[in-house]
Amino acid sequence: MKKPKLILIDLDGTLVDSVPDLAFSVNSMMEQIGRATYQEAQVRNWVGNGVERLVKRALLNALDGEPAENYFEKAYPLFMTSYGQHNGERSQLYPGIREGLDQLKSAGYQLGCVTNKAEQFTIPLLKALGIHDNMGIIISGDTLPKKKPDPMQLLYAAEHFGIGSDESIMVGDSIHDVTAARAAGFQAVSVPYGYNHGQDIRDAEPDAVINSLADLPELLEQALRLAT
């Protein structure tokens, strides 16, 4: 690996375990439409492709497919209202996140959060968990016309800091993060936890896999030592 100047980090499944809040809101929605609720573990398998897809999966009790349009149109606003009210109440930072962010910031790296989550949920969640101010840029799923796995968000962040793609890293939990990194010319670092629908993230062939963000500073220092 090459030591970077810019480190972009995914939100859900990488920085934050947001499933508890999402599951609460899914079940609130299901109760309001008169349907059975789910265990948190089941909702966990459906997270990772945005809240619209999450709602559709909950309505279908399946990973793929499309519910009836009128059914979705009734349910989706109920989910959005609940999630807007409870976002950040049950979510937690993964182990090592605060330590890793502090170490990376102290070491002089430019940091940013790049997520497919809508801004109306991204900013409150980052603030609720006390890591909003660690980020030099925050790019949400509706900030730009395209989002991961498209490289647009990553390239926009690099341009914002005036840093080349070859000096940038994307850290994430899913194949979308690796795909976006490759398309943008970034290095890709993955975490093995998070929301990748049960698939081993190593199969996506990132440049490195770390068990915690707290492991990233040492990985980058090793890269520097090997290069000199």
Results as ranks from 00 to 15, higher is better:
residue 169 I to W: 01
residue 151 P to N: 10
residue 217 P to A: 14
residue 42 Q to M: 13
residue 60 L to H: 04
residue 30 M to T: 00
residue 152 M to L: 15
residue 127 K to L: 10
residue 31 E to S: 15
residue 182 R to E: 15
residue 26 V to W: 06
residue 209 V to N: 04
residue 69 E to M: 09
residue 162 G to I: 02
residue 211 N to S: 13
residue 26 V to M: 10
residue 227 A to V: 08
residue 25 S to I: 05
residue 38 Y to S: 11
residue 39 Q to V: 07
residue 62 A to V: 04
residue 11 L to F: 13
residue 156 Y to C: 09
residue 60 L to K: 00
residue 225 R to Q: 12
residue 117 K to S: 08
residue 122 T to E: 05
residue 35 R to W: 00
residue 205 E to C: 02
residue 60 L to N: 06
residue 107 A to I: 01
residue 213 L to E: 06
residue 70 N to P: 11
residue 170 M to H: 03
residue 207 D to T: 07
residue 44 R to G: 14
residue 77 P to R: 09
residue 24 F to P: 08
residue 81 T to K: 15
residue 144 L to K: 03
residue 219 L to T: 00
residue 202 R to S: 13
residue 178 V to T: 13
residue 47 V to Q: 02
residue 163 I to V: 04
residue 92 Q to Y: 15
residue 225 R to T: 12
residue 166 D to P: 04
residue 89 E to A: 14
residue 198 G to L: 00
residue 126 L to C: 10
residue 152 M to P: 12
residue 160 H to C: 03
residue 18 S to P: 00
residue 208 A to V: 13
residue 89 E to S: 09
residue 127 K to A: 10
residue 179 T to P: 10
residue 71 Y to V: 04
residue 155 L to S: 12
residue 100 G to I: 07
residue 19 V to C: 10
residue 54 L to Q: 05
residue 76 Y to I: 10
residue 44 R to Y: 15
residue 184 A to R: 00
residue 109 Y to Q: 12
residue 204 A to N: 05
residue 186 F to Y: 00
residue 204 A to D: 06
residue 74 K to M: 14
residue 220 L to R: 01
residue 2 K to H: 13
residue 117 K to H: 09
residue 43 V to E: 08
residue 168 S to N: 07
residue 140 S to V: 11
residue 139 I to C: 09
residue 32 Q to P: 03
residue 154 L to Q: 11
residue 213 L to G: 06
residue 175 I to W: 01
residue 65 G to L: 00
residue 45 N to T: 15
residue 195 Y to A: 14
residue 29 M to E: 00
residue 154 L to A: 12
residue 132 H to L: 02
residue 100 G to D: 11
residue 219 L to Y: 07
residue 112 G to L: 15
residue 95 P to G: 13
residue 215 D to F: 07
residue 228 T to Q: 15
residue 214 A to T: 05
residue 101 L to G: 04
residue 58 A to P: 08
residue 52 E to N: 15
residue 105 K to F: 00
residue 100 G to H: 09
residue 21 D to L: 09
residue 223 A to W: 06
residue 68 A to N: 14
residue 169 I to V: 01
residue 23 A to I: 08
residue 20 P to N: 10
residue 3 K to I: 11
residue 17 D to G: 03
residue 8 L to P: 07
residue 52 E to T: 15
residue 117 K to L: 13
residue 172 G to L: 01
residue 26 V to E: 03
residue 125 L to Y: 01
residue 49 N to W: 12
residue 203 D to N: 12
residue 35 R to G: 05
residue 222 Q to M: 02
residue 134 N to L: 12
residue 138 I to Q: 03
residue 121 F to P: 03
residue 141 G to L: 02
residue 209 V to P: 04
residue 98 R to D: 10
residue 112 G to R: 10
residue 79 F to K: 10
residue 135 M to E: 09
residue 210 I to P: 01
residue 91 S to H: 06
residue 204 A to F: 03
residue 101 L to K: 01
residue 219 L to D: 06
residue 138 I to A: 03
residue 67 P to D: 08
residue 65 G to H: 04
residue 4 P to C: 09
